[in-house]
């Protein structure tokens, strides 16, 4: 079977022969081939500087992908992830500007995104509105409210908040902070998904929500928790992003970033039907998209053409995912 290397009940590392045919392996090979092609044809691609830039630029995308994977594995989707991230970062920056110490500011931001995650999860779990509609609507809601509160599109942290800026611009041991954060989050999420009961329940819920419920899993609570968790991880991405650029632009909510996140997740084999995929999937998906975007930028392709290319790739990924993991299309609910 193509697809998952991690599934409920058989938690063992994927063996080598199996890895060869999995979707992750295919994407990894495509990414490597693409990178080789770029290295050979594009001047300036295969330099250490560019590769570090690449790694740093995909870090944010990768962390967001990990957050998204948490809800997608549980058969959900969070289109408000970017909005929550922007709102949380903006809250931190405003708190810093108000003169609060960095830890307090971070806690305030965390509280904001956890509240957003809770609202999403509650509406999805208890009102039973499909995740797509819920998060699409809350994304607009968050954007409007944040803009209303901020009165401006871009917020800047005070240059004195060095501890905050270090989270994005620091280089302990010469490694850029975003890469460290990405790696740390990846390891933690991996351990959570594969080694804890709560993580395995996410797979159970994604595989068959009804069966999980009947087995005694508190599905509604878990849905709320998973959206809060996703929002919190997304918040980390926001911190890294706003600290490294020393700004947060609210227009990011209206950008196509959220589709890049979905793309990263789906491409790597975290199927939208739920219950499939792992952290590895997100890593290879991020790698491929990172290489692709980096290459396109070096080739100086304009933003609109990039949008079209990414859109086409995402379309292909969705169709491929649907082929590999067909959902019961006849009984599927609207918004699935």
């Amino acid at each position: 079977m193509v697809g998952s290397t991690v599934s409920v009940g058989q938690h063992r590392p994927a063996r080598f022969p199996r890895l060869l045919v999995s979707q992750e392996a295919v994407i990894l090979i495509v990414a490597i081939v693409l990178a080789l092609v770029f290295a050979l044809t594009l001047p300036g691609f295969a330099t250490v500087g560019n590769l570090l830039t690449l790694a740093r630029s995909v870090s944010v995308l990768g962390i967001l992908g990990l957050a998204m994977a948490l809800v997608v594995i549980g058969r959900g989707l969070d289109l408000s992830l970017i909005a929550a991230m922007a709102a949380g970062s903006a809250a931190v920056i405003q708190a810093l500007n108000a003169g609060l110490p960095v830890p307090v500011a971070l806690l305030i931001g965390l509280a904001v995104v956890l509240a957003i995650g809770f609202v999403n999860g509650w509406v999805i779990a208890f009102v039973e509105v499909p995740a797509l509609f819920t998060t699409l609507a809350t994304a607009f809601l968050i954007f409007g409210l944040t803009r209303f509160v901020l009165k401006t599109v871009i917020v800047y942290p005070p240059p004195t908040a060095t501890a905050f800026l270090y989270l994005g611009q620091g280089r302990p041991l010469g490694i850029p902070m975003p890469i460290i954060m990405f790696a740390a989050v990846a390891v933690l999420v991996h351990l959570f998904l594969s080694r804890t009961r709560a993580g395995r329940f996410i797979y159970a819920r994604g595989d068959n929500t009804e069966a999980a419920r009947l087995t005694g899993v508190d599905v509604r609570r878990d849905i709320i928790v998973s959206y809060m968790l996703a929002a919190a991880i997304g918040f980390l991405a926001g911190i890294v992003s706003s600290a490294s650029t020393a700004s947060m632009n609210m227009q990011i909510i209206n950008s196509t970033l959220i589709f890049d996140v979905v793309l990263v997740v789906v491409l790597g084999g975290v199927s939208l039907v739920g219950g499939r995929g792992s952290v590895l999937s997100v890593l290879v998906g991020t790698l491929l998209i990172g290489v692709l975007l980096n290459g396109l930028t070096i080739m100086n392709v304009n933003g609109q053409v990039q949008d079209i290319i990414r859109g086409l790739v995402l379309l292909g990924a969705i169709i491929l995912d649907n082929r590999l993991h067909p959902r019961d299309e006849e009984t599927a609910r609207q918004g699935d």
């Binding site: 797509l132 053409v305 990414r310 379309l315 969705i318 649907n322 299309e329």
Partner: peptide
């Protein structure tokens, strides 16, 4: 192709928008 309507049309929205802007 039995793609999910919500995501599919969301993606066509992006592609069409980008094309429109160009």
């Amino acid at each position: 192709l039995k793609a999910r309507p919500f995501l599919t049309t969301l993606v066509t929205l992006i592609i069409l928008r980008a094309g429109f802007d160009m």
